[in-house]
């Protein structure tokens, strides 16, 4: 009972203190608001770049052209070999007639040219279309397939893929570094703002010590206060994130500039992001208070 009474009072006091030290509370909250908005924007960017990158990576296919005079048995052999490779996500076999009809469907010009081809005149090749699990190792897989018997040519847009991989890797790493750096900076910024708040209440801490409050007794209300400031500070960034991103997603119909670049769907993404922002706000607020009050408890 006693513990709950003390805890209840601590919570009540932290609410009171937030309002009694209103101007300083507003300073801490504004600081949290601004930094959490920046954190939110960078998480949105990072997540979308990553999403786009993984979509593109999924689309990269190795096309294995088989020799013209290949027999069904040999096709099975190649399939077995592909099957035995590691890093293979999926593959499909398309014979030349299938490819021809696909191409004819896609364009009138192709249709008029290819329409007259007979099976033994068809210059196209039977193919396997292979997708890999880890795109960074696509070179490896392609090289291995090249060594197979009855494989004529292996194509996968090598240059384009290589460049894309490099660009995505760089963008991914930079954006993750930015998010982490921002979080650390936020933590210290908020911690320092709360430090100013607490410094102005040195006397209060001194009196608490004098009347026999234990260190824990003194820390808890301040830590609750940090929690409260963090939670209050995350409200505006959460509202901006939810409405802002949903509006943005709606405005662009879920894609940026071309159907190729797809945005992450607004729900449930914005809700997860809100939760993350709330957690960052609370943790950073509590950490800031704890760090600041600790200094005043040493003699």
């Amino acid at each position: 009972m006693k513990v709950f009474r003390i805890l209840g009072r601590n919570i009540r006091d932290s609410f009171k203190n937030v309002f009694r030290n209103f101007s300083l509370s507003i300073a801490s909250i504004s600081c949290i608001v601004i930094t959490l908005i920046v954190v939110s924007i960078s998480i949105v960017l990072t997540y979308n770049v990553n999403n786009f990158a993984s979509l593109v990576e999924k689309d990269v296919t190795i096309v294995v052209f088989l020799k013209n005079d290949i027999t069904d048995l040999e096709i099975d052999e190649v399939e077995d070999k592909i099957n035995s490779l590691s890093n293979i996500d999926s593959y499909v076999f398309k014979d030349k007639m299938e490819i021809t009809s696909d191409m004819m469907e896609s364009s009138e010009v192709y249709k008029s040219i290819m329409g007259n081809w007979k099976e033994d005149e068809n210059p196209l090749r039977d193919t396997f279309q292979v997708k890999v699990t880890d795109i960074k190792l696509i070179d490896d897989v392609a090289d291995k397939i090249k060594q197979f018997d009855n494989v004529e040519v292996v194509k996968y847009g090598e240059e384009m893929v290589k460049q894309l991989i490099t660009v995505f890797e760089v963008v991914k790493n930079i954006s993750i570094a930015i998010v982490i750096a921002l979080m650390v900076v936020t933590a210290f910024l908020i911690s320092n703002t709360i430090k100013i708040t607490i410094h102005s209440r040195k006397r209060e801490i001194e009196i608490m010590r004098l009347v026999g409050a234990s260190n824990l007794n003194i820390k808890i209300p301040f830590i609750f206060e940090g929690l409260l400031l963090g939670a209050l500070g995350s409200v505006i960034p959460i509202i901006i994130t939810i409405y802002g991103y949903t509006a943005l997603y709606g405005h662009f119909n879920g894609q940026l500039f071309s159907p190729f670049i797809k945005l992450v769907p607004a729900t449930p993404f914005v809700y997860y992001l809100s939760l993350i922002l709330l957690c960052i706000g609370i943790l950073v607020g509590m950490f800031g208070s704890w760090r600041a009050v600790r200094k005043h408890l040493k003699i």
Partner: peptide
Amino acid sequence: RNGKVYKLRRKIGV
């Protein structure tokens, strides 16, 4: 110890 000072302070008024 620093963390136990409160025990003394509870017996003293200042």
